[in-house]
Amino acid sequence: MDALIHQVLAGLATGGIYASVALALVMIYQATHLVNFAQGELAMFCTYLAWTLINAGFGYWPAFLLTVGLAFVLGVVIERVVIRPVENSPVLAVVVVFIGLLVILNSIAVWIYTGTIKTFPSPFPTEPLFGNKFMSSHEIGAIVVTLIMLLLLYAFFRFTPLGLAMRAAAQNPASAKLVGIRVGWMLALGWGLAAAIGAVAGMMVAPIVFLEPNMMGGILLYAFAAALVGGVDSPGGAVFGGFLVGVLENVLGAFVIGNELKLAVALVLIIGVLVVKPSGFFGKVHITRV
């Protein structure tokens, strides 16, 4: 029993990682209706920026805020320069661009920072909270940060005019344009926000998995599963999905199928959800009238 509780809690800790990256995936999907394969590498790259700033003498929080700002700008620039030209191309062309971005960002990181793992500082205390033996303070802190991001996102889309405009631009670009929304800029804004969320996710993930150019590779796959399980257009669903995938993976890996098949859990989930309930647990079912 003790072992089970331990696995579940460790699962929640890794689930928090998946949730934060899934949130960034959902963000970009909401803004552009595309799944960004380069999301993980973008987050990794921004984390390196933060690491550079901290090493240059910035405090943690100034570096944190500056990185979020830089990530936002980077996201907007990428949309304007790289994505814009292929905006009206077939989906596959855009996917190829995403994969290109993934490889480029990864290579640049290896080139500048080498593949040696680096320590990324945590803003949370090093000793476990309340002397518990299950989760480190950082893991708990990262989960809280993810939940705060979720709340902010919810409030942004629900209560601000800009959020409403972004939703409109993504769901019905033609009508949105007719009511005076600058759809192109809304897309760029969506990219910026997604990159900023990714940066926060990266900075929360790095102290756990250590900073290196491939740190997001495995995580992105689990985050896809999380986003799909929750519903790829639902931020709350993505976070729920993240925790679910983290716990399922650990419990199944430890007690049922063995560690060798852990990754398969994520893949089975992806396929299962797409076949049985493509909108996920919390996603909206879209019906198009013909």
Binding site: D2, A3, H6, Q7, A10, G11, A13, T14, I17, T116, I117, I208, V209, F210, E212, M215, G217, G218, I219, L221, Y222, E249, N250, G253, A254, N259, E260, K262, L263
Partner: peptide, 29 residues
């Protein structure tokens, strides 16, 4: 697997099995 984000779950499994000696065959990260 090299694609696993962490080995946390594995460490917990070894602890739960009552091991008092660990042979750690892993790459740096």
């Amino acid at each position: 697997e090299v694609a696993d984000p962490t080995v946390d779950s594995q460490i917990v499994q070894l602890q739960s099995a009552g091991a008092d000696t660990l042979f750690n065959v892993t790459t740096p990260k």
